[in-house]
Amino acid sequence: MSKKIICPRCESEHTDILTQSPVPGVWEVYHCEECFFAWRSTEPDFITDPAKYNTEFKLTREQLDQSGIMPAVPPLKKR
C-alpha cells in the first residue's frame, strides 16, 4: 500500500495492516500502534474515515497515557 493509513480515532500515522481476509481480497484489518484502535476496510465510513469518525469517540495517545490504570500494578515482593 503506497498511501499512508491514518488512524480514524487518534489520526496517528503509526498504523499497520494487521491481517487480510482468509478469502483473498475481501477485506483488510488495520490497527493503530498509538491508541490500539482496529478497523476493517469494509466498515461504514464513519468508522474508517478520520474526518467522519464520531468526535465523541476521538481519543489520543496523550489521553490514554493519562487514563486510569486498572487494576493497579502492585509493589514487587519476594516469594
Binding site: 490497527h31 484502535f37 478497523w39 468508522i47
Partner: peptide
C-alpha cells in the same frame, strides 16, 4: 484467521 472477529458496537475500540 481462526476467529471471525467483528466490531460489536460502533464506538468500540476494536
Amino acid at each position: 484467521d481462526i476467529l471471525p472477529l467483528f466490531r460489536l458496537n460502533h464506538g468500540d475500540a476494536g
